[in-house]
Design a protein around this nucleic acid. Sequence first.
DNA 1: CGCTTACCGGTAAGCGCTTACAGCAGCCGG
DNA 2: CCGGCTGCTGTAAGCGCTTACCGGTAAGCG
Lengths: 354, 354
Amino acid sequence: MPEAKRPKGPLTIYDVASRAGVSIASVSRVLNGQGSPKAATRERVLTAVAELGFVPDGAARALSNGLKEVVGVVFRRGDETPFPHEDESFLFIDVIYRGIDFAARRRGFDVLMGSVGFNDGNVATRVAAVAGKADGLILHDRMISSTSIMRLASMLPVVTLAGTPTRGAMNVRCDNEAGMRELVRHMAVHHGYKTLGYLSGRNDSPDNHARAKAIEIEAAKHGARVEPGDWQGDYSAAGGAKVINALVDSGKKLPRAILCANDQTALGAMYALARHGFSVPEDVAVTGFDDVPVARHLHPPLTTVRQPMQDLGATAFDVLYSKISTGKSEADVVLPVQLIVRESCGCTAGEDGA
Amino acid sequence: MPEAKRPKGPLTIYDVASRAGVSIASVSRVLNGQGSPKAATRERVLTAVAELGFVPDGAARALSNGLKEVVGVVFRRGDETPFPHEDESFLFIDVIYRGIDFAARRRGFDVLMGSVGFNDGNVATRVAAVAGKADGLILHDRMISSTSIMRLASMLPVVTLAGTPTRGAMNVRCDNEAGMRELVRHMAVHHGYKTLGYLSGRNDSPDNHARAKAIEIEAAKHGARVEPGDWQGDYSAAGGAKVINALVDSGKKLPRAILCANDQTALGAMYALARHGFSVPEDVAVTGFDDVPVARHLHPPLTTVRQPMQDLGATAFDVLYSKISTGKSEADVVLPVQLIVRESCGCTAGEDGA
DNA sequence: CGCTTACCGGTAAGCGCTTACAGCAGCCGG
DNA sequence: CCGGCTGCTGTAAGCGCTTACCGGTAAGCG
C-alpha cells in the first residue's frame, strides 16, 4: 500500500490541512475561491486534495453556509400498473424531471427525487423528509393538502406544479383550458362533430374540473353537445378502458368524439374501443392530452394537446431558484400549450407537429 | 395574523422546544422515536411541531449522525440531439432512475440526480459535488477515469453501472455477452443468415468491445461471417444513420443482417435504410439492444435484447445500501438479459415478449 | 532603520441537530 | 423514613465546514 493508510473514518478538511501543512481555513478558502491565498499555499492544498481524493462533506457545508444547493421534487409515481404500454405513459414525470435537472445544472444545484406511490401512506412524512434536505421544493399537484403546503412554504420556498396557486407557495402550470378550448374548436368546427364526451380524470383534481368546464363552454359556443353520464376516469389507461367498456356494455350510443383527460386515458379508451370493434376515428374520434412520447405511435396516432413538460420543469426550477437566491417570486406562471393534430381526431396523416 | 410572528430566520428545534416548554433534546427524541418520552411530553412536542410546521434540517441531521439518507446518481444525459424520435430513446436512463428510486424509497433514502451532458466539461467536479451530498454514489459507465473512481471509492461507497468492476468500487451490469450470443444464434441458426454486420457503439466503451467479441465468436461457431469495415457508431441514432449512409454510398453490399449496439443506433439505421429504399427485414434484418420503450413501436417492431433496466437500478441501490449500512459488498453483480423477438429480424408478428 | 500598511493565514465561533452523560424526581424495599 | 433504583429530562459536546476577526510578517515609506 503506497499511501500512508488513513487512521480512521472519513477524510476531513483537517486531514487535508495537516497534509498540506496549512490550517483548515486555508483549505476551505482554496476550495471555495474565497480570499486570496498565496499561489504556493493554493498549490499545496490542491496537491493534498488530489492525493487524498478529498471531497468536502455537503452536509457540513450546507449547515455552515445555509445553502444546500439542492431542490427537492416530489411526485406521485405509478405503482406498477400492468396495463399494456402503460409503463411508458408515466414517463411524462421523467420529462419534467429532465427539465428541472437541466435548469438546476445551470445553477450548480442538484435535484433530489422523492416520489411516492399513489397508494403510499404518509405522504406528508415523505415530503417533509425531502423538504429537510433541500433549499426549495417542487410539488406535484395534490400531493398534500393546501394547509400543509402553506405550512411548508413557511419553512422553505415551494413551487407547485400544474396545480392552483396556494397562499404562500408559487405555482407553475400550463394553460390547459386554452388548449382544451382549441381542441374542442377543432373537433366541433373543423370536423363538425356534434356530440362530444369527456372522459375525465381523477375527481379530486382541480385541473380536471377546469378542463371539463372549458369543454362545456366551448362546445356550447359552437353548437356541439357534451354527453352527460358516468364518464369518470382516473388518468390511467385502465380507468379509460373501464369507462368505455361500461359504456358499450350499457348499450348507450357513443358520442361522435371522445376527449380524454390525458393520453393514458385515451390509450385505454382506444384499446377498449378496438376490442369492441369500433374503429377510430371513423366510428369514434378520440383525443388525448399531454402528448406523451408514445402518443404518436398509437394506431391511429393520437391527436392531443402538448404540454411543454420539459419547460414546465425548467420553469419551476427557475422560479424556485430566483426565490431562493433573491427572495423574489412570481406567484403564478402559466405556460402556453400546443394543439397537436394527428389522426385519431379524423384528420389525415402528415400533420404531426413533432 | 393569528400566530405570533416568528422573529427571524428559519425555524429550528429551539423554537419548537421553547414553544413546547421542553428541551431540545426532548424534541429530538420525540421526532426520532428514541428513548421513551412521557406521553405528555410527546404530545406537547408534536403539537408545537404541527403548529409551527417545523421540518428538521437535513443537513444538520446528516452532519450529526453521519447519515444523509441520500444516494447520488450521476449519468450522462443527451444534449438535445434533434434526431426524430430520439428524445424518447434516452428514456432508458429514466427507467434506471425509477428502479433506483423504488428501491431507495423502501429504505427511506432519497435519490440525488446529478446528470451531466455528453459534452460537459468538468465532469469530475459535478461528480464530486454530488458525492459530497450523498452517502453513496451510483455512476454510469465511463463517467470518470478508473483512477478517479478508486479515489472516490475511498471516501464513500461507489457502484458503477454497466461497466467493468473497478478496484474499490462495486459494479452492477447485465449479461450483455450472453444476450448478444443468443441474438447471434437466433440470427444465424433460426434465420440462417450468413453475413452479419455489427454497428458498434462508442469506441471508448468496454461494453461495446465485449459485445463485438461475443458476436465474432458466436458467429464463427455457427458458420456466419461478420462483415469487417468501418462500422463505428456512437450509440446515437444519428451515428447509426451516418454509418448506413456511408455504407450505402460506398456501394458496398450490405450484409444480410445488421446487429446494432443499441436501440438508438438501430433506430437511426432503420431510418437510413428506409430512405435508401431497403426494406427491413426483407432486404436487411436489423436488431437493437436494450429494448427501450419505443422499440416495439418501430416499423417493423424491433427485435432486441432486453436489459432489465429497472432491476439494474434497483439492484445498484440495494448493493450500495448494504455497503452503506453493513459495510458488506458484492463486487460484481450480473443480471440476466432476455432476447425479445419481434419482426425486424425476419420473424412474424405476435411474438412480442412484452 | 523604525514605523505604517497591506496582506495572509490561523484561531475559534457557530450553523442545527443527536446523544452521552448527568441530574432529578418518584418509587420500592429495608 | 431513607438509600438506591428506575425513568425521564436537560446540559453540553461535537459532527465538518465557513468565515469573522485578529495577529504576524513583509513590504513601503519617511
